[in-house]
Simulated assay, not measured.
Amino acid sequence: MPIQALRTPDDRFADLPGYPWAPHHVADLPGFEGLRLHYLDEGPRDAPHTFLCLHGQPTWSYLYRRMIPVFLEAGGRVVAPDLFGFGKSDKPVDDAAYTYAFHRNTLLRLVERLDLRNITLVCQDWGGILGLSLPPAMPERFSRLIVMNTGIPVGRSLGPGFDAWKAWVRTQPDMKVGALLKRGTKHLTDAEAAAYDAPYPDASFKGGVRRFPELVAIEPGMEGIAEGEAAADFWANRWTGQSFMAIGMADPVLGDGPMTALRSQIRNCPEPMRIADAGHFVQEWGEPIARAALASFKG
């Protein structure tokens, strides 16, 4: 039975500041037939590196607008999808449609559909929770990692910061996304904050925003633990690519402590770039991060 979904009108995305790229869509991913997924696909298809930029909650590919130009300038290809429920992608109406497997399988099928290779995984928040689980399933496709303010949940608490965030989201069925971003990102303009609100005409479009905190595998038996355990093993013992870590130090949920712990799980991960005034949405400080990451990579 097809999943009932809403589609944000295109006119809500007109003239977004710093986001000039053409939309791409796919509506027949295996297992997701009838749902239209949006993604950016910029740069040469035969580029030596493909930057797969994965957003989290409650953002969308707009979050990468400060990093994408740097990757393109370096001759890379950039693919930045909007997960279902976010950005320009379709938004299932039933909150229960959003599961860990639903989102992870979307990304696996998209990587296969586009036949992405020599991938530099660029991830933060749920982009990391999901993204870090992809290479164990297709290791031949990934060669580098840029990781920011995220974690690998394996059935244990992420700490009181996450517990507080999860409890707060439960009280916000119509979360004001732009206002949230602006509170933690003082240099964000009103127009940029409004761009984060653009995907959501009303609360009925925010099922994904509401659901994501409930899906983090912090308790025994939750979906995603097996994938998280496989990811932890992969990054600690089988990863042979290059890594770069940036930490938004003002993040009260996934800041220095959790990221230092994550670094210990990533084989040969060098000393991270620490950005004192950056919060959870560290891509809003993305241009210097992207330049530092590229400078650190060899080849």
Rank of each mutant, 00 (worst) to 15 (best):
F51L: 13
F51C: 11
L52K: 02
L52Q: 04
C53D: 06
C53G: 06
G56I: 10
Q57M: 13
Q57W: 07
R65L: 05
R65V: 11
R65Y: 06
R65D: 07
R65S: 09
I68M: 14
V70Y: 12
V70A: 14
L72P: 11
L72S: 04
E73Y: 08
E73V: 06
E73S: 15
E73I: 04
A74C: 10
G76S: 08
G76L: 07
R77C: 10
V78E: 08
V79H: 03
A80C: 15
P81Q: 05
P81I: 08
D82T: 09
L83G: 02
G85T: 13
G87W: 03
K88N: 05
K88S: 09
S89D: 08
K91Y: 13
K91F: 12
P92V: 15
V93I: 15
V93C: 13
V93S: 13
D95Y: 04
Y98D: 13
T99V: 12
Y100D: 02
Y100N: 05
H103Q: 15
L107A: 09
L107W: 04
R109L: 04
L110C: 11
V111T: 11
V111G: 00
R113C: 02
D115R: 14
L116V: 12
R117E: 12
R117I: 00
R117L: 02
N118R: 15
V122H: 08
D125Y: 10
W126P: 03
G127F: 08
I129H: 00
G131D: 05
L132K: 02
L134Q: 01
P135Y: 03
P136A: 10
E140T: 03
E140G: 11
V147E: 08
M148L: 14
T150G: 05
P153E: 07
G155V: 05
G155K: 05
R156Q: 13
R156I: 02
F162G: 03
F162I: 01
D163H: 06
D163Q: 14
A164V: 14
A167M: 02
